[in-house]
Design a protein around this nucleic acid. Structure first.
Length: 801
RNA sequence: GCCGAUGUGUCGGAAUUGGCAGACGAGACGGACUCAAAAUCCGUUGCUCGCGAGGGCGUGUGGGUUCAAGUCCCACCAUCGGCACCA
């Protein structure tokens, strides 16, 4: 027997699979399909992280198993390669991002190939490829034509040191993610995508997909739909103020109003505001604060009362004061609120500080001490025609009253904001838009796509935060597609989330030249059957791509409402010390070293065995040895093969193992599937030998996890053919049962003895035998039996006094 | 503050969904082989009392339901993740 030379064995099979194109998805559309997808990586300079293979191996196991079960499997891989880190590296080292990207991709690809993942490399894509981003731009154009892409003058995050605009996700605790300097708000005209138009569908269609619960909950919370009412308040200047409230039932308790410092009402009526100096100073002060500072000082409420103007509570006609305070946000609802201090803790705090009247309208709490915010109990008081009603009934009645009296209406609101879809950066997809003095904002014509990134050498953004593209005259100056006159190109590029919003479509038909993908391929492969990825993408990538898909559904590009029918998530791999892996903590594990030392099969096996797939787990450099040992023991089995057929004494456990492994893979219980195979191997070692058929089945079951060693042993033992072409074994449910089983005998729930009985023995007979047991009989001698419980094939419990 | 997840030996983790807690792996300890070490193989390994047969305790804490609770209910504590003045 040769030693287990995993290095050469793994190289040999990786080359074979490559040459043979073993894992190429078939064009045969008559076969049942299975589309498995993992999030394509950002090819960073750091190389592969041990976390990547966890997700990739998991779906690789599923994909390999499904192929053996007769499915036409699509398991593709590609590169989400536009983005900041590459661009920053380019600026620093004066290397073109394209070159950096190419090198990083090569490195990543090499690392992935070393793991023996069964990707269909013939469908490899990169978001930075012009033939790919042509269609990213095309989708943007369709959105623009449908009014879903629009420009808006708005506050953006501005890094004072980098002199550039940052995305929200690039701002950490009010500081620039890269240089740690302060981020302030700056007004700028930005491209936006109207994701809010899809808010309802993005929530409601979650009912039709199989996503793990936390993902659905997080998306729902992020979209933040709430039901309430818009209410009209008259003011003493004759103008109206509108508010949004989820508690119209408490309208009688509204003792003041608050408008946000940015509210246009202030400027409109500044001549009537007697303390405008005070208000202006306050607005100035607030505008200087960053969003971060504004949320940090949330405990202490600030603000000023507007003198000279008062509002009228529409429910009771009482005049109430209007305040300006930054605890009211201009970006949510109407930028103005009706304050009900008795039943809202923020209003309560504000009212206490400014000595405003607090009127209880729902009884059940103690409004002397704190706001009573529960709306599940209590009756209405001090509320005119609502008195005595429950909160629920009062809400319905108040909305009806508002509508009848034309003072308001039912209204639904969302926390979700439109998507800021522009970056003043080089390394992204150019936004295919032209500005013409005559025609305004004009879409580039579709035949001119892709608008390619010009080849430049200076990637620094300009001092005023414009994209580096704005410095390239040949790029900027163009002709208007409409009138043919002089025009200028948009120089902003798309955010990194653009390319990843539709990549799963491109895999279906990666070379298609006249559409995102041909409809025949899309109809066959979609939806993605199983998509695994990180929880951190739940409210960004996953939501964005669902939005794009729904848009593409609306314009007839795809014929399914949802892109992914199943979404799962892997837990993070932590460092040995249980902390998140990072360079600064010095606990990073390099996958190349692990593969070099133990081999790809052991690495794959360990990543699947280390714990519950959905939970995070710390890396252990000693535990991985157990997986290596298991493969060594498997390797040594080749000398223990004797006999042909499955032995009777092994049959039951073999069938149990097949069932366990088959079910566990589908349920992502990879750790227990491996444990079952380890237990089987231990049993074989106890017996001292294994037969051909037993070995064959063991190798087939193990092959999705450890494909190289499985192929090699399959060849060495000489079964003929390759393990990956074998049919996945079935199990016989009848054989999974043992003939005799041990049951537990309890008295009053305490285990007293055990008994071996034939399986499925009748209850009466079991109880009879149980009572004949020496210990049980002894124990029962002085007692009276009250109850006898028999749980089939499991236990007997006799309750006696 | 709100939402979500988690809490089981020395460690990673199992437990057919209410039915033998600790599968499988790691580590540790003992033994075999070896001049020796590594590797390998064979044992032991939740805590505790007892020489022993055997007993008691045990799934974050406190209560409850049940013949039976890691699993269900109530209250609390801790850790992690997300959101955070969203009216």
């Amino acid at each position: 027997m040769k030693t287990y030379d995993f290095k050469n064995i793994e190289k040999k099979w990786q080359k074979f699979w490559d040459d043979d194109q073993t894992f190429r998805a078939s064009k045969d559309h008559t076969k049942p399909k299975f589309y498995a997808l993992v999030e394509f990586p950002y090819p960073s300079a750091k190389g592969l992280h041990v976390g990547h293979p966890r997700s990739y191996t998991a779906l690789d196991v599923v994909a390999r198993k499904r192929r053996m079960q007769g499915y036409n499997v699509l398991y593709p891989m590609g590169w989400d390669a536009f983005g900041l880190p590459t661009e920053n590296f380019a600026i620093k080292n004066h290397i073109h991002p394209e070159i950096i990207t190419r090198d990083n991709i090569n490195r990543f690809k090499n690392q992935l190939k070393n793991l023996g993942l069964s990707f269909d490399w013939s469908r490899e894509i990169s978001t930075t490829d012009p033939s790919y981003y042509r269609w990213t731009q095309w989708i943007f154009l369709q959105m623009f034509k449908k009014g879903l892409a629009y420009k808006k003058y708005m506050a953006v995050n501005w890094c004072t040191s980098c002199k550039c605009v940052l995305a929200n996700e690039e701002v950490v605790n009010g500081k620039c993610e890269r240089c740690q300097s302060d981020v302030v708000r700056k007004n700028k005209s930005q491209w936006m995508l109207k994701i809010t138009q899809y808010a309802d569908r993005l929530i409601d269609d979650l009912d039709d997909v199989d996503y793990i619960k936390p993902v659905k909950i997080q998306q729902k919370n992020w979209i933040g739909r709430s039901y309430g009412a818009q209410v009209e308040f008259e003011t003493t200047v004759g103008d109206k103020l509108y508010v949004y409230t989820t508690r119209p039932d408490t309208l009688f308790g509204a003792t003041y109003m608050v408008i946000s410092p940015e509210h246009p009402f202030i400027d409109k009526w500044k001549s009537r505001i007697e303390n405008m100096d005070e208000i202006s100073a306050y607005r100035q002060e607030v505008s200087k604060k960053s969003e971060f500072e504004r949320s940090q000082i949330s405990k202490d409420k600030t603000g000023f009362k507007i003198s000279g103007i008062r509002a009228v509570n529409p429910a009771n006609g009482k005049e109430i004061p209007i305040y300006v305070s930054d605890y009211v946000l201009i970006s949510y609802g109407t930028g103005a609120i009706m304050a009900v201090p008795a039943h809202d803790s923020r209003d309560y705090e504000f009212a206490k500080k400014f000595n405003i009247e607090i009127v209880e309208v729902v009884e059940g709490g103690n409004v002397e001490k704190e706001a009573f915010t529960s709306c599940s109990c209590g009756k209405m008081v001090n509320s005119g025609f609502l008195n005595g009603l429950t909160v629920k009934d009062a809400q319905i009645k108040m909305i009806k009253w508002l509508e009848q009296n034309k003072k308001g209406r039912a209204q639904t609101n969302y926390k979700l904001r439109d998507w800021v879809f522009a970056r003043q950066r080089y390394w992204g997809e150019p936004i295919p838009i032209v500005y013409c003095d005559k025609c305004g904002i004009v879409a580039v014509s579709e035949e001119d796509l892709p608008i390619k990134l010009p080849d430049i050498t200076d990637f620094e953004p300009t001092d005023d935060g414009e994209s580096p593209l704005s410095k390239i005259d040949e790029f900027v100056n163009t002709k208007c597609p409409k009138c043919g006159g002089e025009a200028k190109r948009e120089t902003d590029t798309m955010p990194q989330w653009a390319g990843s919003s539709w990549y799963y479509l491109r895999y279906c038909d990666p070379c298609c030249g006249d559409a995102v993908a041909s409809s025949g391929e899309l109809d066959y492969w979609l939806p993605v059957d199983w998509y695994n990825g990180g929880m951190e993408h739940t409210t960004l990538h996953l939501l964005y791509s669902r939005f794009w898909h729904k848009f593409l559904f609306d314009i007839g590009v795809v014929s399914q409402k949802e892109p992914y029918s199943k979404r799962t998530s892997h837990g993070m791999i932590l460092g040995q010390n249980g902390e998140k892996m990072s360079k600064s903590r010095g606990n990073v594990v390099n996958p190349d070293e692990i593969v070099g030392e133990y081999g790809a099969d052991t690495t794959r096996l360990y990543e699947m065995f280390m714990g519950d797939f959905e939970k995070s787990a710390p890396w252990s450099s000693s535990s991985i040895k157990g997986c290596k040992r298991f493969l060594d023991r498997l390797w040594n089995l080749q000398d223990m093969v004797e006999g042909e057929e499955i032995r009777e004494e092994v049959d039951a456990n073999l069938n149990k193992m097949i069932k366990k492994v088959t079910d566990d893979i589908e349920n992502m219980k990879f750790n227990t599937a491996i444990a079952a195979m380890m237990a089987f191997l231990n049993e074989i070692y106890d017996l001292g030998s294994i037969t051909n058929q037993e070995m064959r089945i063991l190798l087939i079951l193990l092959s999705p996890f450890a494909p190289h060693i499985s192929e090699e042993l399959y060849e060495i033992i000489g079964f003929g053919g390759y393990v990956h072409e074998q049919k996945w074994p079935d199990y016989d449910p009848d054989k999974c049962k043992d003939e005799n089983i041990e049951i537990v005998l309890q008295i009053c729930g305490k285990i007293k003895s055990r008994l071996i009985i034939p399986v499925d023995l009748a209850k009466d007979e079991v109880l009879k035998r149980a009572k004949q047991d020496k210990k049980i009989a002894m124990d029962l001698r002085e007692k009276r039996i009250i109850k006898e419980i028999y749980v089939e094939n499991r236990l007997v419990n006799i309750v006696a006094k």
